[in-house]
Design a protein around this nucleic acid. Structure first.
Length: 157
DNA sequence: ATTCTTACA
DNA sequence: TGTAAGGA
């Protein structure tokens, strides 16, 4: 068993603040026009950072990208902008909770017998067992495996 | 090249 | 909301 990544190495990659987009990029990513994005911002639905100095223009955070995607989804299924936004904002608190739990649970990425697995941290209160999760490509589902914590450091790099 | 605001359709 | 104008 070997650590491919430890928690601290995953942080930068999962830190959504590291991903920012200009309006043209957000438009091609979401299918929402620049006109709409500016209008939504004027209504307080989304936020952007105004870059000062050389490179003018709006900059959107990853969080905004997600929100725009979700609003677009509801618009496409026939909701008005107002109700689409309401739906999205109701769901956002659950997304936040989900993200908190998943990111705090994720302890690293390991490889066991050639299979890449997520280290989900201690399974029991006294820290004897570690919970690992991996994806079964054949059955298209998540599988779990327990491993003794004292084996976790083996073959470390 | 891209984005900005304003304004009219 | 789209589009065009006219600047940055």
């Amino acid at each position: 068993m070997k650590y491919l990544y430890r928690k601290e190495h995953l942080k930068a990659g999962f830190n959504s603040e590291n991903y920012q987009f200009r309006i043209g990029e957000l438009t091609s990513m979401t299918g929402v026009s620049a006109r709409q994005l500016r209008y939504w911002e004027s209504k307080g639905i989304i936020e952007s950072i105004h870059r000062s100095g050389e490179q003018e223009g709006r900059v959107y955070k990853f969080k905004t990208f997600i929100k725009v995607m979700m609003i677009k989804y509801y618009l496409d299924t026939g909701y008005t902008l107002k109700s689409a936004v309401k739906n999205v904002e109701e769901k956002q608190k659950y997304l936040t909770l989900t993200r908190h739990i998943i990111f705090s649970a994720l302890n690293g990425i390991v490889e066991v017998d050639g299979t890449v697995m997520l280290d989900l941290g201690n399974f029991d209160d006294d820290g004897q067992q570690r919970l690992l999760a991996y994806f079964d490509d054949d059955q298209q589902k998540v599988r779990y495996q327990l491993i003794d914590s004292d084996q976790m450091g083996d073959e470390d790099e």
